[in-house]
C-alpha cells in the first residue's frame, strides 16, 4: 500500500451527470503520483471542482471509481477520507468561532485525538498563532484562507486538495501560499491544486492536467506544457500596406495579414532573445513604418482551443 511507485490516487472512468442534465465529467482517468504537486488547469465550469468534490466525498459520482492511498472512496470511505484534506475555493467559515476552536473541531471531525502541540505547530507555521483566540469574522480574507488550510491539515492528511488557492489573493500572499505548498511537499504531502492561472501551475506544479468540458484532455510534465505555452505573437499595424514580405525580413518568421496592412511575428517568449529589437531596427532601415503594435501571449484559452481542435481532428 505504501509502495512509492504506486499512484496515491487513481481515478478511472469517472463520470458525473447532475440532475440538471449537465454532464460535468465525461469519463476521467487520472493517476496522481505519490509526493508530487499536480495542477489541474481549466477554464471556469470545466469540471475541476466537480472532480475534486468527488474525490473528497462532497459529490457522488455517476460512475467510475476512485482509490485514494489504497482505499476505495465509497466502499472504504472512512480510511480514504482520513487521508485527504480539502481547502475549498470559497471561504466557508463559522463566523463566530475562534481560530483555535475551529481548527480543533476539524481534527475532531476526522476522528483524531486532540493534539494541542500539533495544532500549535500548524498555527505557527501559517502565522496564525497570534490570532488563535480571534474569532473568524475579525480576520482578513488572507488569514481566513490560511485558517482553511490549517483546518484541512488538522488531521495530518497525506493528500491535500487546494481548490483555487490563490483566487482573489494579493501578490504577497500568493508568494506565501506557493512557499507553503513547497514546504508541505517536502514534508511528504501529495498536493493537487486547481487554478486557471498559468503562472501558478508554472511556479508550483510537477505535472499539469488540462481539463475542458468535463474531459481531461492532457496530462503532461510542466516543462513540456510550458514549451507549448511559451509562444508569443507581435502584431504591427503598418502605415502602408505591403504586397509581400520583403526578402530582407526573411530571417524572422513573419507573415502578412489583413490584406497586407498587418505584419505578424511569432516568437518564443521564453527565449533569451525575442528578435523584436533587431526586427524593428531592420524595418526602420528599410523605411517600413507602423502605426501601432501589440504583443499577445498564447493564453490558456488558446491552448484549450488548440487542444480541443487537435482532438477533434485526430
Amino acid at each position: 500500500m505504501s509502495d512509492s511507485s504506486e499512484p496515491i490516487i487513481s481515478i478511472s472512468g469517472l463520470t458525473k451527470a447532475y440532475a440538471s442534465g449537465l454532464q460535468a465529467l465525461k469519463g476521467v482517468d487520472l493517476e496522481i503520483r505519490r509526493g508530487e504537486i499536480f495542477a489541474l488547469l481549466g477554464p471556469n465550469g470545466a469540471g475541476k471542482t466537480t472532480l475534486i468534490s468527488i474525490v473528497c466525498g462532497l459529490v457522488n459520482p455517476t460512475s467510475g471509481t476512485v482509490v485514494a492511498d489504497g482505499h476505495d472512496i465509497i466502499r472504504d470511505y472512512r480510511n480514504a477520507r482520513s487521508k485527504i484534506g480539502l481547502v475549498p475555493q470559497e471561504l466557508h467559515t463559522d463566523q463566530f468561532e475562534p481560530v483555535w476552536a475551529t481548527v480543533s473541531f476539524s481534527r475532531g471531525l476526522f476522528g483524531c485525538p486532540p493534539d494541542p502541540g500539533y495544532i500549535e505547530k500548524l498555527l505557527r507555521e501559517l502565522s496564525l498563532w497570534d490570532k488563535r483566540n480571534a474569532i473568524m469574522k475579525e480576520l482578513s480574507g488572507g488569514m481566513k484562507r490560511r485558517v482553511m488550510i490549517a483546518k484541512a491539515l488538522s488531521h495530518q492528511p497525506k493528500i491535500l486538495f487546494l481548490d483555487e488557492p490563490t483566487a482573489g489573493v494579493d501578490v504577497e500572499l500568493r508568494r506565501d501560499m506557493w512557499q507553503l505548498v513547497h514546504r508541505l511537499r517536502t514534508s511528504g504531502v501529495t498536493i493537487i491544486l486547481t487554478t486557471h492561472y498559468i503562472e501558478e501551475a508554472e511556479e508550483m506544479a510537477d505535472r499539469v492536467g488540462v481539463i475542458s468540458k468535463g474531459e481531461l484532455i492532457l496530462v503532461e510534465r510542466k516543462s513540456e506544457l510550458m514549451k507549448k505555452l511559451g509562444k508569443k505573437k507581435l502584431t504591427l499595424n503598418l502605415a502602408e500596406p505591403m504586397a509581400q514580405v520583403p526578402s530582407e525580413l526573411s530571417d524572422w518568421d513573419v507573415k502578412l495579414n489583413a490584406d497586407g496592412s498587418e505584419l505578424e511575428y511569432v516568437f518564443d517568449g521564453r527565449a533569451e532573445r525575442s528578435g523584436i529589437p533587431s526586427l524593428l531596427r531592420r524595418m526602420s532601415d528599410l523605411g517600413i513604418g507602423f502605426k501601432d503594435l501589440n504583443t499577445h501571449q498564447s493564453s490558456l484559452e488558446d491552448i484549450f482551443v488548440n487542444l480541443v481542435t487537435e482532438r477533434k481532428a485526430s
Binding site: 466525498g57 480514504a80 482520513s82 485527504i84 480539502l86 475549498p88 466557508h92 463559522d94 463566523q95 471531525l109
Partner: peptide
C-alpha cells in the same frame, strides 16, 4: 447556509 457543510461531507463520518 454558510457552506461549512463541506467539512462534514469530507470527514470520515
Amino acid at each position: 447556509f454558510t457552506g461549512t457543510i463541506y467539512e462534514l461531507l469530507s470527514a470520515p463520518l
